[in-house]
Design a protein around this nucleic acid. Structure first.
Length: 261
DNA sequence: AAGAGAAGCAACCGCATGTAT
DNA sequence: TATACATGCGGTTGCTTCTCT
């Protein structure tokens, strides 16, 4: 037996909202608020909508001070930094961008920013603004231990993540590479390999050829290489020190605690 | 000009979490 | 403590618009 539906699906309208419905919802909330009960709201407001649908419409489009349209470079950098640190916690990220909604940021990331990142067009080695550093220098999560993002148990913050190649790999590179590269039309851009640099704070990674591997470079003497196998549908990759990336020596890699997926 | 495919984005779905009892 | 229910969230879908041929 499944979960009880939150509303009467048969008598509920779905799909895009009409201006009339928007007006009804806005007027009702302006007069009475949400009443702390979204489920009951549509009936009171005279809307044939699911309460969840009303909530989404209000939060994403109707409430005051929502910002739509172009994202600024600063917003790009904030999103990328937070994504590198905490992953796809869109509501948290939205909380740091005044007027932006989680849905907007999620869509923006999935359709544009991810591609911009892979092409290195936004990751300029510019310092963050003082405001930004002040705002985000405190740990964002104390309980970050997602099974999909095995992390040290210590608290993370955005700056730590940039300085740590392993965090960078887990949170920034792998989410991108886990999508087949042909979905980026990667090779269609016809940009010289040397220009295809990803810059991220103090960490530089560069991709070569068909994303077979990515070099993550933190300091002159600390260079790591991510090997990415395009042929493997299950996505196999491991992080290695560049100098020891010897295909004939997997045992050495394992003995050094290399990570496989 | 028209059709096909890609991109953008609003909205839905189902699960996780929070809260009241 | 257990249960029921509302809310919040992230992943995904599918419609619309744009771009290319």
């Amino acid at each position: 037996m499944g979960r009880a539906p939150c509303c009467d699906k048969a008598n509920v309208k779905k799909g895009p909202w009409s201006p009339e419905e928007d007006t009804k919802l806005k007027d009702f909330i302006h007069k009475f608020g949400t009443g702390g009960n979204w489920i009951a709201l549509p009936q009171k407001a005279g809307l044939r909508r699911c309460g969840k649908s009303c909530r989404l419409r209000w939060l994403n489009y109707l409430r005051p001070n929502i910002k739509h349209g172009e994202f600024s470079e600063e917003e790009d950098r904030i999103i990328c930094t937070l994504y590198a640190s905490i992953g796809s916690r869109w509501s948290i990220i939205a909380g740091q961008l005044h007027g932006r909604t989680d849905n907007d940021i999620k869509n923006y990331w999935n359709t544009k920013l991810k591609k911009k990142l892979i092409m290195g067009s936004i990751m300029q080695p510019k310092p963050f603004s003082p405001t930004f550093q002040t705002q985000y220098s405190q740990p964002l999560y104390k309980d970050y231990n997602s099974i999909n993002h095995p992390q040290p148990t210590k608290s993370l913050n955005a700056i730590d993540s940039m300085l740590d190649p392993q965090n960078y790999l887990y949170n920034n590179i792998l989410p991108i590479l886990s999508t087949p590269s042909d979905q980026y039309s990667y090779n269609n851009y016809d940009i010289p390999v040397e220009e295809n640099m990803l810059m991220f704070g103090n960490t530089t990674s560069s991709s070569y050829g068909k994303l077979d591997h990515v070099i993550i470079k933190q300091e002159e003497n600390q260079e790591f290489m991510l090997h990415y196998n395009n042929e493997d549908p299950l996505f196999s990759a491991f992080l290695d020190e560049k100098e020891t990336a010897n295909d004939d020596d997997n045992k050495t890699r394992e003995s050094r605690g290399m990570m496989y997926y």
